[in-house]
Design a protein around this nucleic acid. Structure first.
Length: 932
RNA sequence: ACCCUAUUAGCUCAGUGGUAGAGCACCGUCUUGAUAAGGCGUAGGUCCGUGGAUCGUUCCCACGAUAGGGUACCA
């Protein structure tokens, strides 16, 4: 037997079938860094329109988890797709470096600042620690294939950045939005600092629930108000509280002016309670025998004097709207030190705070009975004292959600302290912020409602912290008047210059006289630090506006939906306060990760998926493909199984590319590329379909509908290419002469497809795309990376799309009959079969058009079309109306070269084993194909 | 407690007021010239539940379940 195999053009490529991503990817990473791919991209886009995706800085602590990976991959996909669209889209990654968690880590290592180690050394340790964390995370992000300015990221602890934080504060002051305030704020007793709303999270907590009696000083006056008889019972106003520890600071009891209050007699005591709550209070106090002896409005009781339950102190009854009958007694224990509403209502009555607690939650020495006690542990003692004083009506426990510090996870208290605020009311900041929401595109749309409702009832933003590892509130206040220095803007700039040079220690080390001269004695240096949300919130100022290659406002912020309350909000507020404009044109959010049961993905539990493991087992491209395939507008489910499925579809895409590449090893586009009018009909269709799909995919990239893009891409590879086009053209690619028109036409289409495909997948399957890119046929001026490329300009072809759609349907119909006959044992593979089609009308015309080439489309050894009226009795019906198919075993010998079974195999004695078509392809002119 | 979002085949996702779609996976089969591949075919769903409006609904409305998120909670 002659070895005709050598005369075939079988697929041939060095592009490996096995991806081996875990090994291969790091090599690409190395190469990209060595060759400065990111810089090359920048050069290639110099002068182009910008698209700025501004990176939200992750906190520089701990290894990256899957959520980080998702976020960075999404950003990278978008930046790369914009680059393919021709934009100059620089990406500057950032890190959030100041703040409590790092401080805690360092404290554990070397002890508390100011106690075991001095502040400066402590800050240096924090700085070193953060820098180390940044390096670790950076390595992982780079490994994911994320391209960016990794050698020049922004860190909120950079000297430049720290200086700009101070300058940003200066701008906010100049625009009149800063306010010094003394009011209760969330206070972390573990952290020893104030917190902002955004740092609070609610968790369930078991608290005491007690009803406490406040004896009325003037018993007869009270009874008169209630119109009750002057009897011997002692009257008490009863309050309910879940925070016994706040009772030492009680300064008043609040009633609602409009509510009806009842005087209830039980035994030898009587109680003032909101009438609506009498029953519930009596019930929980186990008092069955009681009667209401009088009624009064809250307003009638104003200024009534009460005896504090255990201190020698008289407190007044005051009125406030915050008192309701939802719970409690209708009489509210009021401690202006420890409650926002308490503070507000107390101010109206001129009641001052007491400041009984120190920063770590311990009662000061001057507090009777409780000096030295910690608030977390004092509740029981307070209750004992109440009992001793016969002031406890009822005692129980309650589970309720309660504010906790989201960093230390400890319960918070409210504590009135002097703090700095960005006021939402001064200079209409609130309305400015609200008004600009419409100017921003929120994706998905509900993001807008979210941010709106959040901002609508957002209180003044407490930006001061009493911590060590934070940017300083670099201000001088007058010792007497507490007013800011009149030259604050100038001073701020001077401080900023110093900080720019030496970092924020420049402020902490600063001798006031160096800047203030003789005035130094009158002024006090503020030692508070800034909320870290302020740090990251001014990145639009310190990075986007500051860096030359970026421009304000950013086109896109892209973070998890939790950042509505975090970074989106803090950035919006500071930007309005500084620039009177929003920092972003659009805000895109993604959901959180859940497992396949829809449960939250933990960082360490059973369903944890460390990205490092995924990289090791499946590779970054598989992870990236999963990100792309998942609809990120809601929760994103991840599991081992889902990732495995993703790996399957990765292989399909990879193999499609490989097959395309393997069929053009001898194709030189400069010489062999056919013009569109030379293409066979089917090949023209393939190119046109590719162009059509490219339009759709670009639209999906632009609207960030990556999961739709994934579906389309995958379908294209499986259905249109694998199941139809590529399957059909194999015969032509393999058997016709290497340089024949028939083959070059197919190769031209294949070439266009792979050139387009490599670009489509580049933003997502970055490593694989780069690998494909290297395997593409050489063309002049081809860059050595796919990432500087733009979308492929495909030739415009006016192909008859519906015609080939019809043919494809016919092929499917024929396949079904073939399968039936295969199962019946009549035929084996397609090439062992001969088919006769019977049709009429348009279908007949369509099929008939293919003439002798019908068999190549159907991939059978013989195929013919006859009018439906001539249909044989045993022809089978198909899904297509008016189409019948008769399948029979192909007769003749199998051509050892093209595998078709034909009668005329061996008709040439020189080539007894092959068919005439093959003979002409080897020795003669080569066969002519017109359609497929 | 309130608000938002999601719930369609084992998985990922489309979709429509008129008897449910794709790809993958599964299973069967062919192929062995994409071979740790590829082709073909079969099978898979009370479209979360209940009630309502409608001639009719998976799609509209109400209530509820599950999941996720958000506001509130501070007396």
């Amino acid at each position: 037997m002659t070895d005709y195999k050598k005369t075939l053009n079988l697929p041939q490529t060095s592009f490996a079938m096995k991806a081996n991503l875990a090994q291969r990817e790091p090599e690409f990473v190395k190469r990209w860094q060595k060759e400065g791919i990111y810089e090359k991209i920048r050069n290639s886009r110099a002068g182009r329109e910008k698209f700025i995706l501004h990176d939200g800085p992750p906190y520089a602590n701990g290894d990256i988890h899957l959520g980080h990976a998702v976020n960075k991959i999404l950003k990278d996909i978008i930046v790369k797709s914009k680059t393919l669209s021709g934009y100059d889209s620089p990406y500057v990654p950032g890190w959030d470096c100041h703040g409590l968690p790092i401080e805690h880590r360092v404290e554990k290592k070397i002890g508390k600042a100011g106690v075991k180690v001095d502040f400066k050394a402590f800050r240096q340790q924090c700085r070193d620690y953060a820098a180390k964390q940044v390096e670790g995370q950076k390595k992982d992000f780079i490994r994911l294939g994320v391209l960016g300015e990794w050698n020049n990221p922004y860190l909120t602890m950079d000297k430049q950045y720290e200086a700009d934080i101070i300058r940003a504060l200066g701008k906010i002051i100049e625009n009149g939005h800063l306010q010094k305030g003394f009011k209760p704020v969330y206070w972390s007793v573990v952290g020893g600092s104030a917190l902002a709303e955004a740092e609070v999270e609610y968790q369930d907590k078991t608290s005491f629930s007690i009803d406490v009696k406040f004896a009325v000083v003037d018993q007869s006056a009270l009874k008169a108000v209630f119109g009750a008889e002057q009897t011997s019972e002692t009257a008490y106003v009863v309050i309910w509280t879940t925070t016994p520890w706040t009772l030492p600071a009680n300064q008043a009891v609040s009633l609602n002016a409009e509510l009806d209050y009842a005087l209830v007699v039980a035994g030898d005591e009587s109680y003032v309670l909101a009438e609506a709550l009498v029953e519930s209070v009596m019930q929980r106090s186990n008092i069955e025998d009681y009667r209401i002896v009088g009624r009064a409005k809250g307003s009638d009781l104003e200024h009534l004097k009460l005896q504090h339950p255990f201190y020698n102190r008289q407190v007044p009854v005051i009125l406030g709207d915050h008192v309701t009958t939802d719970a409690g007694t209708g009489c509210v224990h009021t401690a202006p030190d420890h409650g926002g509403e308490d503070f507000a209502v107390s101010q109206k009555y001129g009641i001052e705070t007491l400041n009984y607690l120190d920063d770590s939650g311990i009662y000061r020495a001057n507090v009777e009975i409780f000096a030295g006690e910690h608030v977390y542990k004092v509740d029981e003692k307070v209750i004992d004292v109440l009992k001793e004083h016969n002031a406890l009506l009822c005692e129980g426990k309650i589970v309720h959600s309660f504010p906790h510090c989201w960093r230390t996870k400890t319960p918070l208290i409210f504590r009135a302290t002097p703090q700095w605020f960005v006021s939402l009311t001064k200079n209409n900041l609130q309305s400015k912020v609200m008004n600009c929401i419409d100017d921003v595109q929120w994706i998905p749309g509900w993001g807008k409602a979210r941010i709106e409702s959040m901002l609508a009832n957002s209180p003044d933003w407490c930006i001061s912290r009493q911590r060590t590892w934070g940017a300083p509130i670099a201000l001088f206040v007058h010792k007497e008047t507490q007013e800011l220095h009149p030259k604050t803007p100038e001073l701020i700039e001077e401080v900023a210059k110093l900080v720019e040079k030496d970092g924020m220690d420049a402020w902490f080390d600063l001798e006031p006289s160096a800047l203030l001269g003789d005035e130094a004695n009158d002024y006090q240096k503020v030692t508070d630090t800034l909320d870290v949300w302020f740090d990251s919130g001014v990145s639009h100022y310190a990075v986007v506006s500051r860096r030359e290659n970026l421009s304000f406002p950013a086109d896109l912020y892209l973070e998890g939906s939790d950042q509505h309350r975090g970074w989106f909000q803090s950035s919006l507020k500071t930007s309005l306060a500084i620039n009177e404009a929003p920092p972003y044109k659009a805000v895109l959010t993604h959901g959180f990760l859940v497992d396949s049961n829809g449960h939250k993905l933990s960082k360490s539990g059973d369903n944890a998926i460390p990205p490092q493991e995924v990289l090791q087992e499946l590779g970054a491209d598989v992870l990236r493909l999963w990100v792309c395939a998942t609809d990120f507008s809601g929760e994103m489910s991840a599991s081992k199984e889902i990732l495995k499925r993703t790996a399957d579809s990765y292989r399909r895409i990879r193999n499609t590319a490989r097959f395309l590449l393997s069929n053009i090893p001898d194709f030189d586009p400069a010489k062999d590329l056919l013009s569109t009018d030379q293409l066979l009909s089917l090949d023209a269709w393939a190119v046109a379909r590719t162009a059509q799909l490219q339009t759709e995919l670009r639209k999906d990239y632009d609207s960030y509908q990556l999961h739709l893009l994934y579906q389309k891409l995958h379908n294209f590879c499986s259905v249109e290419l694998g199941g139809f086009y590529l399957d059909i053209i194999k015969d032509r690619l393999y058997t016709t002469a290497a340089d024949s028109l028939a083959r070059r036409s197919a190769q031209t289409a294949v070439y266009w497809i792979v050139e387009a495909l490599v670009r489509w997948i580049a933003p997502v399957l970055s490593f694989t795309a780069e690998e494909i890119w290297a395997a593409l046929p050489a063309v002049e001026n081809r860059d050595d990376t796919v990432f500087t490329a733009e979308w492929l300009e495909l030739p415009q072809i006016d192909a008859d799309m519906s015609y080939w759609k019809t043919i494809s349907n016919v092929k499917t119909a024929v396949n079904k009959v073939l399968e039936e006959e295969r199962n019946a044992g009549v035929v084996g593979g397609g090439l062992t079969a001969s088919v006769t089609l019977y049709a009429e009308g348009e279908i007949f015309e369509a099929i008939n058009k293919l003439e002798e080439e019908l068999r190549f489309v159907l991939i059978t050894s013989a195929a013919s079309i006859l009018p439906l009226s001539e249909a044989a009795n045993n022809a089978k019906d198909t899904d297509i109306k008016g189409l019948k198919v008769l399948v029979s075993k192909a007769s003749g010998e199998k051509c050892v070269r093209c595998y078709h079974v034909l009668e005329d195999v061996g008709s040439n004695s020189e080539h007894p084993e092959i068919c005439p078509r093959c003979i002409t392809n080897i020795d003669g002119q080569g066969e002519v194909r017109k359609f497929a």
